[in-house]
Design a protein around this nucleic acid. Sequence first.
DNA 1: ACTGAAATTTGGGATGC
DNA 2: GCATCCCAAATTTCAGT
Lengths: 156, 156
Amino acid sequence: MKSNQKQTRIDGIDKKILRYLMEDARTPILEIARNIGISGAAIHQRLRKLEKSGLLSGSKFILNPKVLGYTTTAYIGIFLDKAMSNPYAVQQLKKIPEVLECHYTTGNWSILIKVLCRDNEHLMQLLNKKIQQIEGVSRTETFISLDQSINRQIQI
Amino acid sequence: MKSNQKQTRIDGIDKKILRYLMEDARTPILEIARNIGISGAAIHQRLRKLEKSGLLSGSKFILNPKVLGYTTTAYIGIFLDKAMSNPYAVQQLKKIPEVLECHYTTGNWSILIKVLCRDNEHLMQLLNKKIQQIEGVSRTETFISLDQSINRQIQI
DNA sequence: ACTGAAATTTGGGATGC
DNA sequence: GCATCCCAAATTTCAGT
């Protein structure tokens, strides 16, 4: 899990390989090999190097939550009573499956979380019955995502 | 790209398969087959069904931006002059590679974006030279993520 | 660092229960 | 909906340049 080497250098071939795999993690290595004109073994070597550098941190299947009936994404800014409450609050938030992200942030709030709910009713229940009940949570501000128009990774 | 079937039902075996692939999209299907005790062909059938339902929306390699020297993640709430400016603003934001997400939101702001920068200096330049320059952008509020303690997908 | 080839494993279809 | 069988294709290693 090291990540502070001097800063990995990647060349144009690495970029091409990564672009294929960032698009579809199951693209066959031999298919990439044919497309960019080097051998499968060479790509293999490069991928092992990239993995060792820590740049490749894995691959994931992406699910579309809408198909399971989860249609409401929201960001919630949370004010905590005192800094001391932070680790406890995060620990409690981890137990709530609807919470997908949690950031300590500068600015108004102590933390900013992203949640995924079935609908607005579910979101309201989540706020009242779970988030607001956490000890140390004093106030929240909710921003429902009506539409996500950009969703991508770092561009290489 | 259909996603509004009646609402896909998935059973325990589907969940096991998905959990393996959400963790590592390149897990061999035959390995999953051995672990959960059914044949590779059966998993194949189920994956085709899940893909057809729209629940599986693809797979991605995940890069660790820190290794490339990108260490500052921030959320920026943007106030736009009038609703009319929205599509234009989003179009301009798409052209900025540092912008990874863009949400139309309820609440204070018109839109909320997530950006990835090398450092605070880079973030400041991005705000002053690019975001604030977009026509229609009247004011912004920035929240730097000091630490992301939760990062996951919908739990199945 | 890349190639080419060998050994092994996997993918994905056909067929039958 | 699942298992077995089967072959084409992909993965992965390794000696050679």
